[in-house]
């Protein structure tokens, strides 16, 4: 299935990363989890990832900044934004153009899987 694809999950809620890992690894994805944006961005500099799932609001660096940095450094990396602000559609629209997809919490894992698959299989 998703054999060999490298996925990075960034969310300061550790359970989110843990669950993404638990759900994607059995399908053959390689998943790395980060609680903070800074070390995640450093890691992205070292290695190329195929897809990044990142939270919009984090304590150290804003999710928007993460998105912009990734799209600048490696435009081919897909980015999925996750946020709890289901109602803040203005900010959602602002980055929607740049992000490859957007998920509101609570995340439907099946949908996320389908989305990842769709983005990477293209």
């Amino acid at each position: 299935m998703g054999s060999g694809y490298r996925i990075m999950a960034i969310d300061d809620e550790n359970i989110v990363g843990k669950m993404i890992k638990a759900n994607f690894e059995p399908d053959g994805y390689i998943v790395e989890v980060f609680l903070n944006a800074k070390p995640a961005l450093e890691r992205l500099n070292e290695e190329k990832f195929d897809l990044v799932i990142t939270d919009l609001k984090m304590k150290d660096i804003d999710g928007m900044e993460v998105l912009q940095t990734i799209k600048k450094e490696s435009p081919e990396t897909k980015v999925i934004m996750v946020t709890a602000f289901a109602s803040m559609d203005t900010s959602i629209k602002a980055f929607r153009g740049k992000a490859d997809d957007f998920f509101a919490k609570p995340i439907k894992i099946a949908d996320l899987k389908a989305c990842v698959k769709k983005l990477l299989d293209k």
Binding site: E13, I15, V16, M19, A22, A84, P106, I107, I109, A110
Partner: peptide
């Protein structure tokens, strides 16, 4: 979200 994701998993 945490509860939901755990339950789904």
């Amino acid at each position: 979200n945490n509860i939901s994701m755990i339950a789904q998993t």
